[in-house]
Design a protein around this nucleic acid. Structure first.
Lengths: 233, 233
DNA sequence: GCAAAAGTGTTCCAGGTACACCCATGC
DNA sequence: GCATGGGTGTACCTGGAACACTTTTGC
């Protein structure tokens, strides 16, 4: 009985929807629960917020512990909070969910308290496969990411520091499940201010054939609002 | 010492950014704090979430207690959560902020624990006038509302059940601080599906002169996504 | 040369903007 | 009639969609 309070007691956790495109599939970073409740089930990485720790700081710490990712440069933002009574059998727990987007290269390092962390393709998740209300949180995170591709530079968070416009287009195509016209995409992105800038380098096509592609980098490491959106429709 | 826990203890509150257009000014519903901390300062309505109460339910209850508004029909949604350590001198408090929008007609009824609730014009608020971090929360709420006017039917929440298109246009103009072309606004709104529908009535101009305006109602009481946005620029 | 990916040019069209103009009312 | 706000018509322009076409590579 280490903690006492005059107010109704809540525990506060952070859960993180970590998304990446692995191979040609949208994947979430999930951990297999090593103990009850929901032992053996997949869950979002996350954990309790420390008594003197900020919410975003807690999310950064959990992300670091689960993935080993240097979190300074990572796209990480608050998603929303989930606090229905009964969502956690251990007691009244409010979870402040966050959304993170990582480039494909990132390999999860087995975490501290997690039995194992893995990229799991969203297409293969069963409806009831996730612990707690994490399926709902994950769905909300994916929708937020799909939506932010439209009006922010979030797509650059899915690719490495240097990328071709085909790689960037692939992000949109996989996330939206829809093909985009390569020519129009190229022009649109290049003419949108504060989005990408050319490095001057070129890179041969991964399939061998075809003209080498110009290499770009994000104009800014932070995610910014685009002057004109990349429309989804 | 009525409450104990095995996990770090947090208290969870809801705070509500309640916006309305009163006269020709954007106002927030604020309460004057009747006790410490921040005694005598203006604050957002809100309070502790009950042990078995959902977050949205808590926000609804607080809104009802402060304003007497029947909350079934009100535009109310979660905004985001604020949980920096030190934001509340009483201890570690995470606040799940909500955003509500009310029509001008709404009069606040003096609340239970609030010394007094009043519509306060945002333009006249001093930077440091609000308790806690409520100035930041309020600013985030206003920005969310301004943004949601673009791509949802939120504007209808600022006016009564029946309204003219001039009244609706006034919502955009006041919130965005910019005049819109009356003719183009009219056509745009009428041709946007699932936004407004005519009642068949007309209403004389409030200033006496001029052609009477057709009366409309929201196509749906819920706030919906617009097929094509009302652009802000 | 041929296939394929990168990148450019061009045409067409929907929708927004600006603004002229007509309509319906009070005085 | 005149002022005023409601509402429609219209000409112009911008930006996106579709797609033809050129460029640069590997084989």
């Amino acid at each position: 009985m280490p903690y006492t309070s005059d107010y109704p007691i809540f525990a506060v956790t952070v859960d993180i929807v970590v998304l990446s495109l692995v191979g040609n599939e949208l994947c979430a970073l999930l951990v297999k629960r090593g103990g009850p409740p929901y032992e053996g089930r997949w869950a979002l990485p996350g954990g309790f917020v420390g008594p003197t720790e900020g919410l975003l700081a807690a999310a950064r710490r959990e992300l670091l512990e689960e993935t080993g990712v240097s979190t300074g440069t990572v796209a990480l933002e608050q998603l929303r909070s989930y606090g229905e009574p009964g969502r956690d059998p251990r007691g009244r727990v409010v979870s402040v969910a966050h959304l993170a987007v990582l480039p494909e290269a990132t390999t999860p390092t087995a975490g501290s308290d997690a039995a194992g962390a893995e990229w799991r393709p969203l297409a293969q998740l069963e409806e009831t496969g996730l612990a707690f209300d994490h399926a709902e949180i994950l769905a909300d995170g994916v929708e937020r990411a799909r939506s932010k591709l439209e009006y922010t530079t979030l797509a650059t968070a899915f690719v490495g520091a240097e990328f071709t416009l085909s790689e960037l287009r692939r992000v949109y195509e996989l996330m939206w499940g829809r093909e985009l016209d390569p020519g129009n995409f190229q022009r649109k992105v290049k003419h949108t201010e504060d989005f990408v800038e050319p490095t001057g380098e070129t890179r041969p096509s991964p399939v061998g054939r075809g003209r080498p592609a110009a290499v770009f980098r994000a104009q800014s490491p932070e995610i910014r609002i685009l002057a004109r959106p990349i429309t989804r429709d």
